[in-house]
């Protein structure tokens, strides 16, 4: 068994409501590297990430997913999350009655109340201040008291998801279009956060995106291109401008030719 890879998919086949979406995908992800998964719409990029996270609608009909060389197919979402796999949702569901700040204090080790005695006036914990400072950095301080994903704009959702995923300190994180719906300033903020992770090299980043900006800014190590549920191309940063210029159709035609 090859345990050089942090995570691999082997001939992975995934169905959604009986319709095959991935038809045998082999990918490898090494620790501390940055990957981009590219491909036209409906090529199976998001499905790949969701199947690796273990979401129940994404049924594995064949193949395997290995984490540190061991199959995780029988592991629940929770177990996968606790092993260090994280997924930033593209459109996270609304959770009524649960505030973003309370939620993060609950799930993220960095922000948990370490000492109940620190409670000030019985209202708020001192750790909230640290959390709010970090919210500020991502420009989402205004979301702290809002209910989780309730009426968040596209850009707010992206940043809130990124914040949560980062604070779980995963070993590998799948970011589903972390740059879509962001204005230029937010894009810079997100880019800066991701760059910081890249530089620390303590987590693997897998970015699903259509846009050149973030990928180039991060200097991705490897790109995988999917088409109709299969891996059709493996390359690097230098392919990105070519892709942008030619578009997927011509790019595919040329590699086929």
């Amino acid at each position: 068994m090859n345990t050089d890879f942090l995570l691999e998919t082997k001939d992975l086949r995934v169905e959604v409501s009986g319709i095959p979406i991935l038809s045998g995908v082999d990918l490898t992800f090494s620790a501390g590297q940055v990957y981009a998964i590219l491909g036209p719409n409906a090529s199976g990029k998001s499905t790949l990430a969701k199947a690796i996270m273990g979401l129940p609608e994404y049924k594995i009909s064949g193949g395997d997913i290995l984490f540190n060389g061991k199959s995780i197919l029988h592991k629940s979402i929770t177990e996968r999350a606790r092993m260090g796999i994280a997924y930033a949702f593209q459109t996270p569901p609304r959770i009524p009655g649960v505030k973003l700040d309370d939620f993060i204090c609950r799930v993220c080790p960095d922000y948990q109340c370490k000492d109940e005695d620190e409670m000030l006036m019985g209202d708020s914990c001192a750790c909230k201040q640290i959390l709010y400072d970090d919210f500020e950095r991502l420009g989402i301080r205004n979301l702290a008291n809002r209910e989780l994903n309730d009426g968040f704009s596209g850009g707010e959702s992206k940043r809130s998801e990124l914040f949560q995923v980062l604070s779980m300190r995963p070993k590998i994180m799948f970011l589903d279009e972390p740059d879509s719906g962001l204005d230029y300033d937010s894009l810079k903020i997100v880019g800066r956060e991701l760059k910081a992770i890249r530089e620390k090299r303590d987590a693997t980043l897998v970015i699903i995106s259509h846009h050149r900006y973030v990928l180039e800014f991060l200097e991705v190590d490897k790109i995988y291109i999917l088409q109709r549920g299969r891996l059709v191309y493996t390359g690097d940063m230098s392919d990105i401008p070519i892709l942008e210029e030619k578009g997927y159709e011509r790019f595919f035609a040329e590699i086929a030719g």
Binding site: M53, L55, P56, S76, I77, T78, R80, A81, R82, A86, Y87, F89, P92, P93, I95, P96, G97, V98, F103, R106, V107, E147, Q164, M168
Partner: peptide, 20 residues
């Protein structure tokens, strides 16, 4: 699924949804 992907187990996630 969403809450579980943040590390809560199924019971914890259900109870959080109910409390909310």
């Amino acid at each position: 699924s969403y809450l579980m992907s943040r590390g809560l187990n199924e019971d914890e996630a259900t109870s959080l949804i109910i409390r909310g």
